[in-house]
């Protein structure tokens, strides 16, 4: 199949065969990253602009490495998204950059829906590198790629996502992606961190992590932001860690071949204990490696036009 989209904004609007196509492409491009000369001329002469309105080192670096390995020229712009910072509007910034004829914008923004709005205002391709609490499609794709590598399938797997679902775009994109690919998604966390009526997205919710852990083929541990305590969502990080932290003892009840994943950056000792993060079940660094391959695939597919 050919990839006909101008933009990659979310997993929710992707078809199953599109997801498969991206994952196959990523698997074949991954090999480039192991060569001594890690560069192919595929996107030579193409311009990629990273427009980041939220601090992010790893996602930006991952996209930048992916683009450079495909020989694209890349530029990074980081700015503050605060509405209180008056000055040029985001749309003006976009229009000015567009006048310099880039081919692809990689956009991250703290406000949900912003890359979608940008995509409507530019003829260049837009890749959503994370918007608010909405979607983070490249993360879900690299997660699916990592699971596939280890489990050889997605269909029929039980994937447990533990933590702050409400504020997590990673959780939302994975709910869509894993659901489309036939996996069963179970969410676990205190009710204060589970958004209302999330079951309408086709997932199950469970408040006791011990109950959910036994059947899980994959456990995705989400980062818990320290400020949740101030938002009346949690009494303390300590109690969160006691009831929801993934540690070696809890993992004793899990399947022998369970995978432990984390989108990073980790709060060691809060949502995940160091021995689990670095333990035999952890595929956290595979996720990072696959991130480059998935982003190469996205840039390649959108850069072909």
């Amino acid at each position: 199949m050919s990839f006909k989209r101008k933009d990659l904004l979310g997993i929710r609007d992707l078809e199953v065969d599109e997801i498969e196509h991206i994952l196959e492409m990523a698997a074949s491009l991954k090999e480039i990253n192991t060569r001594t000369i890690k560069k192919v001329p595929t996107l030579r002469g193409k311009t990629v602009i990273h427009l980041f309105y939220e601090p992010s080192t790893r996602t930006r670096t991952s996209f930048d490495i992916a683009a450079k390995r495909l020989s694209a020229d890349t530029y990074s712009i980081t700015a503050s998204a605060s509405s209180l910072v008056k000055g040029e509007t985001l749309l003006d910034t976009l229009k000015n950059l567009e006048a310099m004829k880039p081919d692809i914008f990689v956009i991250r923004h703290t406000a949900s829906g912003t890359p979608h709005r940008m995509a409507r205002h530019t003829s260049a391709s837009v890749i959503n590198a994370g918007d608010g609490m909405h979607e983070h499609p490249s993360q879900a794709l690299l997660d699916m790629m990592t699971i596939l590598e280890h489990k050889k399938r997605l269909e029929g797997l039980n994937v447990l996502i533990v933590g702050d679902i409400t504020h997590s775009r990673v959780a939302r994109s994975n709910i869509w992606g894993l659901g489309k690919m036939g996996a069963k998604v179970i969410l676990c966390g205190p009710k204060t961190l589970i958004p209302p009526e999330i079951e309408s997205l086709g997932v199950q919710v469970c408040y006791r992590v011990e109950e959910a852990i036994a059947d899980a083929d994959v456990i995705m541990v989400l980062r818990l932001q320290k400020e949740r305590q101030q938002q009346m969502l949690l009494p303390s990080l300590r109690e969160y860690s006691i009831y929801y932290g993934i540690n070696r003892e809890r993992l004793g009840k899990a399947k022998q071949d369970v995978l432990i994943m984390h989108p990073g950056p980790m709060n060691r000792g809060v949502e995940i204990s160091p021995d689990v993060a670095d333990g035999p079940h952890s595929v956290i660094l595979d996720q990072v490696t696959n991130g480059v391959a998935v982003r190469m695939a996205l840039l390649y597919l959108l850069g072909q036009k």
Partner: peptide, 15 residues
Amino acid sequence: NEGPISTLLGLRGIP
């Protein structure tokens, strides 16, 4: 509005 759509869109809801 807080509900399935706000959950899906990742927009904070007003209950």
